[in-house]
Write a protein that binds this DNA or RNA. Structure first.
Lengths: 228, 228
DNA sequence: ATGAACAATATTGTCTACATTTTTGTAGTC
DNA sequence: GACTACAAAAATGTAGACAATATTGTTCAT
């Protein structure tokens, strides 16, 4: 039922995937300029295909295209940030519920294996891998929940969450600590639906609490108000 | 907070919008071929822009692109159909809950006005307008709920629902009758959250019940198994 | 008549060149 | 010396031509 992994995608989707990953791993900051020719050279594709990919990413809200100016990594405002986290809590709660309803015993080891990878990357100090695996855990939950649609939504939510934490984090980023993931797996194994939901919501709340959403951060392109 | 109406969109998004509308109104059937040159001529844009739009629609799952063959309106399978309706029930329930939390008294007339339009189109026998307004009611709910993200998700869900009902409806299509919408408005006005949720879920269940999801319908392109 | 090989057509995919627009740099004028 | 106007550069947007591929139609041999 679930696509397992989206390996059977077109060439455009692959470009999107790579840009998405760079954003999710915070290697591309909000407001960063995305020049077509540059991307075409990097990915060794035609400029036309880059434009297709950018159009897709714009429709997903990850990239903002200004006519005759170019493409930039989006800079979500505080309203959008709150919106994303609000929706994410609801979606992930549903994912966990559905997962507990449908998960089979032989799927638990997949979660445990992923958790081990997270711990290793964390101890190794590999922040890039840590960020990727951290988001990957949530995606794995959605995948095991057996709904392609929820998977797609969560994908979108996670990439936007990355942008938001990159813009609004007040102190060092929390990185979705593996400990909370471990506690979640325990609840899933015990099929403790209320417990798992509680942990997930607290988990996401912790991430949100480390953000400073009190005031709009001046956007990179509008320097007007930034310099008074 | 909410964009009110997405009037400030790029030219690519406009092409997507028009194709999306044609699919949502069932003027474009599942499996229909989408020739680039033809679309370019119809919309009076370059072929490159059509290709961008098709790439976006593919990423949204509305269109399937076969390399070197072309673009077709997607033909969702029964698994995906069940998935869409399952998620839609959950999403729309959250929309209604959030709407009741946040709706102000002066927004109720907007819903009533929309309902009047639905009734008029229904009595007029204008099926195209009826379908559009019917989906528009659900979108209006999401818009008033004040979450751009939920709005986007629902947009996606509704277009896919259209495809699914076009493929799997067993008898005349139910069309999301205005009466159930009226009952829903009553509950919203009374801020009756459980009642509203109940009506919404029943409403969507009615739509789903009129589908025949018992067996896979042979896809247009694989005539192999269709003709044994 | 049937089947396979081949040619013709149509459509997608890609590349190149050019027009348009924005930004940046420079010279001229007060 | 500062401001304006203009020119140059860079990047985007678009159109057209060409190549690659799949489909359709035809011919030829059996």
């Amino acid at each position: 039922m679930s696509n397992s992994k989206e390996t059977v995608t077109g060439p455009t989707a692959e470009i999107c995937e790579r840009i998405w990953l760079s954003i999710a791993e915070k290697r591309l900051r909000p407001g960063a300029r995305l020049k077509e020719e540059q991307l075409a050279e990097i990915f060794e594709v035609s400029r036309a295909r880059v434009r297709q990919a950018l159009a897709v990413l714009e429709s997903e809200g990850l990239v903002t295209i200004v006519p005759n100016r170019g493409a930039f990594v989006s800079e979500p405002g505080v309203d959008e940030a709150r919106d994303v986290f609000h929706v994410r809590k609801q979606i992930e709660a549903r994912v966990v519920e559905r997962l507990i309803d449908r998960v089979s015993a032989d799927q638990i080891p997949l979660l445990e294996a992923h958790l081990r990878q997270e711990r290793e990357a964390d101890q190794r100090g590999d922040t890039s891998a840590t960020i990727r695996l951290s988001g990957g855990f949530h995606l794995l939950l959605a995948e095991l929940a057996g709904s392609d649609f929820l998977f797609g939504i969560l994908r979108d939510l996670i990439s936007r969450s990355s942008l938001i934490t990159a813009m609004y984090r007040s102190r060092h980023l929390h990185n979705c600590g593996p400990d909370e993931h471990a506690a979640l797996i325990d609840c899933i194994r015990a099929r403790d639906k209320p417990g798992a939901t509680r942990i997930m919501l607290d988990h996401l709340q912790h991430v949100e609490d480390e953000l400073d959403l009190s005031e709009e951060v001046p956007t990179t392109r509008d320097l007007r108000q930034a310099l008074v």
